[in-house]
Structures are given as structure tokens and as C-alpha cells.
């Protein structure tokens, strides 16, 4: 295949495809959060849901030897975790930020405990067969979950903005009282969307653990759930916006690691790198903060975001 492409094209194409692969877990989580926030539920437990999905995918894929089963199990586990969030955050009307934080604690602790139990105290790593790419190979390939995420973007755009259900969903996040008055079951809708968020995060977790890598490490999500939250805001609560933002962040991430690997980081007078490793690692977070600062005034969250609704 490389015979047909010039060297520069290969470099750029592999850069783009690698960025896509890195963006996939965050994209799933961001899409889930986008739907959730559109119905008025802020779920900051994405990080925890991603972890649950990542661990489940590895454990099931390694036990069965079938990566696809790992992905399905991760989806189910994500729904389970989200059901807990929905129970407290939507049905029992507790503060969603607090419930989300609790979910993160729970997921970090539980996945850590279970993984250590599965590896007999961290002495042996569990490796799982990773998902084979749908097409291409090596650094020029596209994974199945990446493809799925790319299909879900226009699909959710269509759902939100072109269907009657979409109108109802968005009304639920803007004026839940009006949605309820016109006959919608606000609590039921919110709970259902919550489960969908969990399913998407489960897939995102699987994309991370057996899509990009083939193992699990404690806290391996490393803040991706929080980056996804920022991506939703940066993308102005639209699926295409989220795709753009997720790609931008992933490209920055991949770009910095490539620059470092290629030793293209400028050195200072004392022979030490001018920009050290931590500065690179902090870059995506600083970028997100800057993005929020610049776009802050122009974006408007769904009006009922984070406000519990009492159907009475």
C-alpha cells in the first residue's frame, strides 16, 4: 500500500488516523455527556464510567478471548453504572455534581479493587486480545469503535435536531415544566438518556483499553472524562462541534508525543529541553481552559442544566 503513497502523505495520514484513534474514547464520552446535558443532566461521573467500561472490556475479552464480547460487556457495565447515577441524580433528585463525584470515587475504587483481585495483588498483568482494525493495518488503520463513533455523530445530530423526539429531548433540558405539561415524562426521559450516556461511556472505555491498548491500569482514563466535559462546552453542545473539539485535542496530544519522540523539542542554553515533558502534558488542559475562556461568553448551556426536576 505504501508504494502508492508518498512518504509525506503516509506521515500525515498516520498522524490523522492516530489522532482519530486517540479521540475515540473521549468522543464517546463527550457524545454521552452532550445528550445528557441536552436533557438537563450534568454528569461529571464520565471519568468513572469510562474506567468501568475499560476494566470490564479487558476482563471479559481476556476471559473469553473475544474482543467483541468485551465491548458488549463494557456497554452493559456502563449502563449499570449510569443507572446508579440516574437513580440518585434524576429519580431521587440529589445534586448531580455530588452524585457524579461520588460515582467517580466508587468507580476508581471498585475498578482498582477488582483489578487487583483479578491480578492477585497486581503481581500479574491481565492482557486481553485487542480489537482488530476494520480496515488498514499498523499505523494506517481505522478501528471498529472509531468508525462507530464517527457514524454516531451525524446520527445524534439528526436525532437531536431533525426528529420530534429530539425536540422533546431538548425541551426537557431547556424548560422541563413545559415538556411535562405537554405530556412528556421528564424523569423517565432523563433517566433513559442517562443510561444511553452510560452505554456510550462503556464503549469509550472499551475503545481505550482494548481499542488502543490491550490492558488495564488503575486510573488509566487519566482525566479523559473531564476533557470530554470540556469538549461538550467547546463544541457548543452540538455533535459536530464535539467531533471537531475532540479531534483538535487528540491532534495536540499526538502531535506533542511525536515531537518529543522525534527530538524536535528546542534546547535551552544549558542543554536542557526548553519545554519539558510536564509542560507538554499540561498543554491539553491549558488549551481547554483557554478555549473555555475565549468561547465562554458566546456559549449558553441548556437552561435547566443541573436542576433537579420534580414531576410531583
Amino acid at each position: 500500500m505504501n508504494d502508492f503513497l508518498s512518504q509525506a502523505t503516509v506521515v500525515w495520514l498516520s498522524f490523522l488516523l492516530q489522532s482519530l484513534a486517540y479521540a475515540t474514547p473521549v468522543l464517546f464520552a463527550a457524545l454521552g455527556e452532550l445528550l445528557s446535558e441536552r436533557v438537563g443532566v450534568i454528569n461529571i461521573g464520565l471519568e468513572g464510567l469510562l474506567l468501568v467500561g475499560a476494566l470490564t472490556a479487558v476482563l471479559v475479552a481476556s476471559a473469553t478471548g473475544v474482543p467483541l464480547l468485551g465491548v458488549l460487556a463494557a456497554l452493559v457495565a456502563g449502563v449499570g453504572g449510569a443507572a446508579l447515577f440516574g437513580l440518585f441524580g434524576v429519580v431521587l433528585r440529589r445534586d448531580q455534581v455530588i452524585v457524579g463525584t461520588t460515582l467517580n470515587f466508587l468507580a476508581l475504587g471498585l475498578t482498582g479493587m477488582l483489578y487487583r483481585a483479578a491480578t492477585s495483588g497486581g503481581t500479574s498483568a491481565v492482557t486481553a486480545p485487542s480489537l482488530p482494525p476494520i480496515f488498514g493495518q499498523g499505523s494506517l488503520s481505522v478501528g471498529g469503535l472509531t468508525l462507530l463513533a464517527l457514524i454516531l455523530i451525524p446520527l445524534s445530530h439528526w436525532l437531536l435536531f431533525r426528529t420530534r423526539l429530539g425536540v422533546t429531548l431538548r425541551a426537557t433540558g431547556e424548560v422541563p415544566e413545559a415538556a411535562a405539561a405537554s405530556g412528556s415524562n421528564v424523569i423517565g426521559l432523563r433517566f433513559f438518556v442517562c443510561l444511553a450516556t452510560g452505554a456510550l461511556c462503556g464503549l469509550g472505555g472499551a475503545a481505550l483499553s482494548i481499542g488502543i491498548l490491550n490492558t488495564f491500569t488503575e486510573g488509566m482514563t487519566a482525566g479523559r472524562g473531564f476533557i470530554a466535559l470540556a469538549i461538550v462546552v467547546f463544541g457548543r453542545w452540538t455533535p459536530y462541534g464535539a467531533l471537531f473539539a475532540a479531534l483538535l485535542f487528540a491532534a495536540a496530544d499526538v502531535g506533542q508525543s511525536r515531537l518529543q519522540a522525534a527530538n524536535l523539542v528546542p534546547l535551552g542554553a544549558d542543554g536542557r529541553p526548553l519545554l519539558s515533558y510536564p509542560v507538554f502534558l499540561a498543554a491539553p488542559y491549558i488549551l481547554t481552559l483557554l478555549a473555555l475562556a475565549i468561547r465562554g461568553a458566546k456559549v449558553r448551556a441548556p437552561a435547566a442544566l443541573g436542576k433537579p426536576f420534580d414531576q410531583g
Binding site: F226, L229, A230, Y285, I286, A297
Partner: peptide, 18 residues
């Protein structure tokens, strides 16, 4: 800028670690 503090304070944690 109307940025939710949940987001900004969380992101600042990651910057502080680095």
C-alpha cells in the same frame, strides 16, 4: 466569562499536577 467552576477547577487540578 460564565465558565462553570466545576470544569475550570477540575482542569486546573491537572495543570497543577504537571
Amino acid at each position: 466569562r460564565g465558565v462553570q467552576e466545576v470544569l475550570s477547577t477540575l482542569l486546573l487540578n491537572f495543570v497543577a499536577i504537571q
